[in-house]
């Protein structure tokens, strides 16, 4: 509860300050708020970049897996449950589809040319450096979310990463912590809400920013409002900085997205993006585990060796 009061206080402060700003500044603030929601999480998901889950997965796979325990689980469920259908929670589909189409057009006329310019001007190595700096700036928010989720170890790692990369790593230009085996692990308030048991709510597509859901959209707004770096920029009267950071983040995210371009080749890109977003968030919210169902052997109908289909249908 205390968290919320603190948050509210900050929020009203922000609103009060806004009243004294010129309309132009308000406009830019709103614009940057809007676009900033997009980037930190999107950058990670789009590029599939970051040292990601490798380490974590390895740690997980070291979990006790006694042979007896395993063999019993096989005996118990030799055939897995019949696969139920995954219904998308998407009541606003017509509106979402319209915005999705708009975003695609924006990509074609605005972001694709920008991406070409950006990747031509900056070689891959420089782009990585820019990506690291931007990522380093998201660490305070990641740290706050680690705390809110009660993950002490993660919080410690984030803090160490931020301190090391901001100093020795020259404001994040060099990913020193990465070579010290403290891989970047993304967190945001959407995932914090998930850890508190909040459901995703309906799927939504946000203009420019792309796929989201009600929970994650609330998370993005909270992350922005609570980001100390935005506060420094705001009270230091350098909204310009905030905007530059925002634009940089968008370009950075768009420049390295081979997975996205693959998804666009599907028969129904909208449905593919929806599934992709839902799965990816489920994966992150469950500590890098995909808990959704997968294809499985069920009733003998799918046997590879047709003749061996002796198992009677359950």
């Amino acid at each position: 509860m205390r968290i919320f009061t603190v948050y509210n206080k900050k929020h009203t402060l922000l609103l009060r300050k806004q009243r004294y700003e010129s309309p132009m500044k308000i406009f830019f603030t709103v614009l940057s708020l809007f676009s900033l929601m997009f980037s930190p999480s999107y950058a990670e998901e789009a590029g599939g970049s970051c040292e990601d889950s490798g380490e974590i997965l390895y740690a997980e796979s070291q979990e006790p897996r006694g042979i007896f325990q395993f063999s019993s689980s096989v005996e118990k469920q030799e055939v897995c449950q019949p696969c139920s259908s995954l219904e998308a929670n998407d009541p606003f589909e017509p509106v979402n589809r319209a915005i999705f189409g708009l975003n695609n057009d924006l990509d074609t006329i605005l972001f694709d040319p920008l991406k070409i310019i950006y990747t031509t001007i900056f070689p891959k190595d420089i782009r990585d450096r820019i990506g690291f700096v931007l990522r380093n700036l998201t660490e305070p928010v990641v740290f706050a979310n680690n705390i809110l989720q009660g993950e002490a170890q993660d919080a410690e790692d984030t803090l160490r990463r931020f301190l090391i990369n901001s100093t020795v790593g020259l404001a994040g230009i060099f990913d020193v912590s990465g070579s010290l085996d403290i891989p970047y692990k993304k967190e945001d308030f959407g995932l914090t809400l998930a850890s508190w048991g909040f459901d995703t709510g309906p799927y939504i597509v946000i203009p420019i920013l792309g796929p989201s859901n009600v929970r994650d959209a609330c998370g993005r707004i909270t992350d922005f409002v609570g980001d100390p770096i935005n506060w420094v920029a705001y009270f230091g009267d350098s909204v310009f900085y905030s905007n530059s950071r925002t634009s940089a983040q968008i370009i950075d995210a768009k420049s390295d997205d081979d997975i996205i371009s693959d998804l666009k080749k599907s028969i129904d890109p909208y449905a593919t993006f929806r599934a992709w977003y839902t799965e990816r968030r489920n994966f992150l919210a469950n500590g890098y585990r995909q808990t959704l169902e997968s294809p499985c052997p069920d009733d003998g109908d799918d046997d590879v060796v047709e003749n061996a289909a002796a198992t009677p249908a359950a």
Binding site: S53, L86, I267, A271, W276, E279, L284, C296
Partner: peptide
Amino acid sequence: IYDVILAGISMGITQRSEYASV
């Protein structure tokens, strides 16, 4: 192999959603 999960995204589920929508 029954499913391939790329960076947390199951190819099976993704394709299923796509086909259902189509």
